[in-house]
């Protein structure tokens, strides 16, 4: 699905990622965990194509294409979806109009016909149930006066409509109460399939109780310092990041 090799990246001259290697196969769920400032969100944003980061070294292959050469909209059309940590408000643009435009841009890219209003409505009604959202959401302006939980659910709803091949969740759990967290996780779980992969970026292990990953990677100071199975997340929950960081510091010394 995606293959990240020796990825280095910096912002305004400060190196944030210092050689990331990550291989995600179809159907796998990888969790990337790490303390604040470790570079987790940077990684997610670079994969989506945000421009303020400069990739200085390394390569990323996405479905056989050189991801770093692709424009952000082309990455999206090829099936890469980022669930934003801070979803953006677009006043005056209805969720429905926004999603229909996005969906049809992706379909056009695939050489498919644009979806008409009836078909679209049927699809979105179905997908709304996945995140337990009311139809009223469709007519509201994108993320405007949405609660924190609604914004995150809206991200997962969009993902469900656009059906990406790779979903990247950037701290989707932040700011969610336990009920909203369950709804969001449940939505993601329903989207899991042998063809679809996920990279779940999170600070806390809590989300991983509900979205059980196949692999967990611990990111610290721009590098993956440890990888393991779902049990690694539980270890972190009990022992915190410090022990691991210290051990790694000693090993490096």
């Amino acid at each position: 699905m995606i293959s990240i090799k020796n990825l280095h990246a910096s912002v305004e001259g400060t190196e944030i990622l210092k050689g990331i290697n990550l291989e995600v196969k179809p159907g796998e769920v990888h969790a990337v965990m790490g303390p604040n400032g470790s570079g987790k969100s940077t990684l997610a944003n670079i994969l989506a194509g945000r421009e303020e980061y400069e990739v200085t070294e390394g390569s990323v292959s996405f479905l056989g294409n050189d991801l770093l050469e692709m424009a952000p909209e082309d990455r999206a059309r090829e099936g890469l979806f980022l669930a934003f940590q801070y979803p953006v408000e677009i006043p005056g643009v209805s969720n429905a109009n926004f999603l229909k435009t996005a969906l049809n841009a992706i379909r056009e890219h695939r050489g498919e016909d644009a979806m008409d209003a009836m078909e679209f409505l049927k699809l979105v009604k179905d997908r709304l149930q996945l995140v337990e959202m009311d139809q009223k959401f469709l007519q509201r302006s994108v993320n405007v006066s949405f609660s924190g939980g609604e914004k995150k659910r809206n991200e997962i709803f969009q993902m469900a409509v656009l059906e990406p091949k790779l979903g990247i969740l950037d701290e989707t759990d932040s700011g969610l109460d336990i009920d909203a967290l369950k709804i969001v996780a449940n939505g993601v779980n329903k989207l899991r399939s042998p063809e679809r992969s996920f990279i779940v970026v999170t600070h806390y292990q809590r989300l991983l109780d509900y979205i059980v990953p196949d692999f967990v990677h611990v990111l610290a100071k721009g590098k993956i310092i440890k990888s393991g199975g779902a049990e690694l997340a539980h270890y972190l929950e009990e022992n915190g990041y410090d022990e691991l960081l210290n051990a790694n510091g000693k090993a490096a010394a």
């Binding site: 999206a76 643009v93 996005a102 841009a105």
Partner: peptide
């Protein structure tokens, strides 16, 4: 028109031109 708004729409597969038109039209809706 924020970079963040445009990027959000781009990330959903919408072209930059359509993104700007969408943001501007939304702004004028009232």
């Amino acid at each position: 028109i924020g970079e963040d708004q445009i990027f959000y729409l781009l990330q959903r597969g919408i072209s930059e031109e359509d993104a700007i038109n969408m943001i501007v039209n939304g702004y004028c809706k009232e």
